[in-house]
Simulated scan of single mutants.
Amino acid sequence: MKSHKFAVGQTVRYSPGSKSYSAPADSYKVVRLLPAEANDYQYRVKSSADGHERVVKESQLS
C-alpha cells in the first residue's frame, strides 16, 4: 500500500462531495495522519475558517 499523500502541517482543500453536508468545501490544515479505511487514508484536519477539526478521507482532499 502507498503512503499518505499529504503531510502534517500542510494546507489542503477539502471537497466533501455531493452527498455530504457535514462540512463546507474550504481550506484545512492537516493535524494528524490516520490509518486507511477501505484502502483510503484518513486525516484529521482543522478548518482555517472556524477552527473545527474533522476526520476526512484522502480522496476528499487536494
Rank of each mutant, 00 (worst) to 15 (best):
M1A: 04
K2T: 02
K2V: 03
S3G: 13
S3A: 08
S3Q: 07
H4M: 00
H4Q: 01
H4F: 01
K5C: 02
K5L: 08
F6Y: 14
A7P: 00
A7S: 10
A7R: 08
V8S: 03
G9R: 03
G9Q: 02
G9W: 03
Q10M: 11
Q10N: 05
T11M: 06
V12I: 15
R13W: 09
R13P: 00
Y14L: 14
S15C: 05
S15R: 11
P16E: 06
P16M: 02
P16G: 07
G17C: 00
G17W: 01
S18A: 07
S18I: 08
S18K: 03
S18R: 05
S18Y: 01
K19I: 04
K19R: 10
K19L: 10
K19H: 09
K19S: 10
K19D: 09
S20E: 11
Y21S: 06
S22D: 10
S22W: 08
S22R: 12
A23C: 08
A23T: 09
A23F: 10
A23Q: 07
P24D: 13
P24Q: 10
A25N: 02
A25G: 09
S27R: 14
S27E: 14
S27N: 14
Y28K: 12
K29P: 00
K29I: 15
K29S: 09
K29C: 10
K29Y: 04
V30Y: 08
V30D: 10
V30T: 11
V31K: 13
V31L: 15
V31A: 13
V31Q: 15
R32G: 03
R32C: 07
R32H: 06
L33Q: 15
L33F: 07
L33G: 05
L34N: 06
L34C: 11
P35I: 00
P35Y: 00
P35T: 01
P35S: 00
A36D: 13
A36F: 07
A36L: 10
A36N: 05
E37A: 13
E37R: 14
A38E: 14
D40I: 08
Y41K: 02
Q42P: 00
Y43C: 02
Y43L: 01
R44N: 08
V45C: 14
K46D: 04
K46S: 15
S47V: 12
S47A: 14
S47T: 13
S47M: 12
S48D: 12
S48M: 11
S48A: 12
A49F: 08
A49T: 12
A49P: 00
D50K: 12
D50W: 04
D50L: 09
G51F: 13
G51C: 11
H52V: 06
H52P: 00
H52D: 07
H52K: 15
H52M: 06
E53T: 15
E53I: 11
E53M: 13
E53Y: 12
R54T: 08
V55W: 07
V55H: 06
V55R: 12
V56M: 07
V56R: 06
K57R: 15
K57Q: 09
K57N: 07
K57P: 00
K57C: 09
E58W: 04
E58V: 00
S59P: 00
Q60F: 03
Q60C: 11
L61Q: 03
S62H: 12
S62T: 13
S62F: 04
